[in-house]
Design a protein around this nucleic acid. Structure first.
Lengths: 245, 245
DNA sequence: CGTGCTTTTGAAAATCATCAAGTATAGTGG
DNA sequence: CCACTATACTTGATGATTTTCAAAAGCACG
């Protein structure tokens, strides 16, 4: 399989310079000063990824880094028989492609219409060498992801279905960049399908559906639509998520 | 809970300088030149951790980094009711404590008698700032761990008990630093207890035991003792581990 | 207003967990 | 050195959570 060909994925060079990038504050690019931003901008290739399209394929030669600047993507690994594990969702500010190996360790596909910035791996590497602040920022990013990964291992290895779903909803809520600031009664948007949630939580679609239905019937959440959730009883959900059921 | 007090954990300053450290090749310290090693050595506090003793406690203020120089430690997270997820085993060369947060995200406990090098967090941070090669190495380490974590998520979320155990044994085998170089019929040493394996694979002790017994009865492995395994049919195990059962 | 896909709901089945007990192993002290 | 205790590992029977299989209900889109 191939990664992003120009024909498939229009590169809008110059259309969205780093200086005006909405992802700048939260992303690794925040490490770069206003004045040096121009140097970064020439390396960045902004591109649109329509919902459902894959832009990183596990095993392909890792020629690029990516930064998500809008939308949501899912990162996943597959087993030969099709079983899938989503290892994370990438939204605005997420940096993708950290890997020492020469090939990607996971695939990435847009969950909804998404914008990413593509960087040539060797060129960005060179840029990083010139800006140690960037390297440091990358280490912070990687460290944070490592912590999140460990938390997810705890979820996958030891939490019940109920606890997993509660954890997921709370994580979505506090994911500030995903939407509106956290407030009681705030709506949580779930741009990903139930299947994706299932593959992220190590469960099946049916279990996700049943569990959410039950949480609703117990008054812990509201479902305005399959993709719009309201947390009605935050304390109870937090208890669940922490494993104090 | 407290982390490492001097009384509990003798600090053997100077006993094992970095220059002669067996972990040097594989660890982050490899990034440092012979000539600068002295500067690193003064920061390092080598210490013994007897089997069963904990030396990092989740939630405690993260005041130190650690490098494992001998033995094996388990890293884990706990749920309030005692459920445990081991997120990894640390052996010679493993760097511990990467986290942006001010408190540890996991606990660490020696599986067998273990030696670690302890570094004051702020001091090592300063050292790293002076040696960009070290920062780069840390990023590589973090990236590799991230890839491993994703692989483990796939295992925990989507693999069967058999597949998990097969994956584990193969991972132990190819863990070059853990023992003798890989060769057919080579013995795999499992210094950790069955409970630890269970908590690492998201299963129970009984399932681990049953699964290994079955692998043995099928001729895929040999068990010289509970802690000494021989892979008899590597191809079959690899098929299992890859999910092609 | 179909058509196709996602989500939900139901019933049966299966993997793995739990409970329980027996066996082996290691460490301790007489 | 050997019995004794504690711990770890193994094995068996039972049970439960979750999966699988199946189908209906909701929605979006042409």
């Amino acid at each position: 399989m191939t990664t992003l060909r120009a024909r498939q994925m229009p590169v809008l060079r110059g259309v969205e310079p780093c200086a005006s990038c909405g992802a700048r504050i939260s992303s690794v690019c925040a490490a770069i000063d206003e004045k040096d931003l121009e140097r970064l901008a020439v390396l960045a290739a902004p591109m649109q990824v329509p919902a459902g399209r894959s832009f990183i394929t596990e095993g392909d030669p890792a020629e690029h880094f990516f930064t998500v600047t809008a939308g949501t993507a899912k990162l996943f690994k597959l087993l030969p028989d099709g079983r899938r594990q989503i290892t994370g969702f990438a939204s605005i500010g997420t940096f993708l492609g950290l890997a020492v190996s020469s090939s990607y360790a996971f695939s990435a596909e847009a969950v909804e219409d998404t914008q990413v910035c593509r960087f040539s791996r060797p060129r960005l590497r060179q840029f990083i060498d010139d800006f140690p602040a960037m390297e440091r920022r990358l280490l912070d990013v990687a460290s944070n992801e490592l912590v999140a990964a460990q938390e997810q291992m705890l979820l996958l290895g030891r939490k019940t279905a109920r606890e997993r779903v509660a954890s997921f909803l709370l994580a979505r809520e506090s994911c500030a960049v995903c939407g509106i600031p956290t407030s009681p009664e705030a709506r949580i948007r779930l741009p990903m399908a139930r299947t994706d949630i299932a593959d992220y939580l190590g469960l099946t679609v049916e279990t996700i559906s049943r569990t959410m239905t039950r949480l609703r019937s117990e008054g812990l959440i509201d479902m305005l639509s399959p993709t719009e959730i309201v947390l009605r009883n935050r304390a109870a959900l937090e208890g669940l998520a922490a494993g104090m059921s």
